[in-house]
Amino acid sequence: MSSLSVAAPLPTVARQAPKQWGRLTLIGAAWSVFAFFLLLPLVIVLTEALQAGVGTFFSAIFEPDALAALRLTLLAVAISVPLNVLFGVAAAWCVSKYEFRGKSILVTLIDLPFSVSPVIAGLVYVLLFGAQGLFGEWLLEHDIQIIFAVPGIVLATLFVTVPFVARELIPLMQEQGTQEEEAARLLGASGWQMFWHVTVPNIRWGLIYGVVLCTARAMGEFGAVSVVSGHIRGLTNTLPLHVEILYNEYNHVAAFSVASLLLALALVILLLKQWSESRINRLRHSGAEE
């Protein structure tokens, strides 16, 4: 499969010298780009957060409104991730195991929330469930509140995270083909047995990878959630919205403190991602060697 074989160095020394220079320049350039574009923003969040001391930092994080925002963010993650996992597996299954007409369109539709502006994602739910919206009157009569309440925030989060698990699984399952599943079936396994004992172990790491990406986006979504939130302190504020509110309250340090909490979560997510990715690579290599 993928050939990552390291070629033997070329024998000619004359060619080595300029190559060495080019190599060092490129590595240097990559480091500078990395430091400028990625490290600097990371460092600034931490320094701004800690500029008034550790005490202020922690009191901003453990303030009741911040904790309420954290709870809401985690709730949105806890609901949207499992639903999208279920969807991702089903979608990847039908896209990768079968050929059918309109598949390109289907894949494009799955991807769509990824490149639809988050503002539009929020807007559509306002159009549907707002008091002026299509179902507005009906919801009012039945006293169900969707937007400007938790369900709206969950829906907006679900919308923007739809593609993540499916997007990771589709190429993985396409690559794996259908032989193993077919073999299991021919040996008499039922559909579910085949799924749990053959497919799931095969896609496990890709699934984790998708979950990690999905979690990251669900946690950090701002635009879509902002449209449907109503910004009620302690009730419909997620962590990213809370950052904005603090920022708008002259509370620069608190804003960056909560931001660094989100940054810490992001780094944990990256760590998980790196770990699942290395497992995928290892599996793939061992597969290639067999």
Binding site: L38, V45, L213, A216, R217, M219, G220, E221, F222, G223, L239, P240, L241, V243, E244, A259, L262, L263, A266, L267, I269, L270, K273
Partner: peptide, 8 residues
């Protein structure tokens, strides 16, 4: 950039 909330 994917993991960091855009507001941050």
């Amino acid at each position: 950039p994917f993991a960091l909330p855009t507001a941050v």
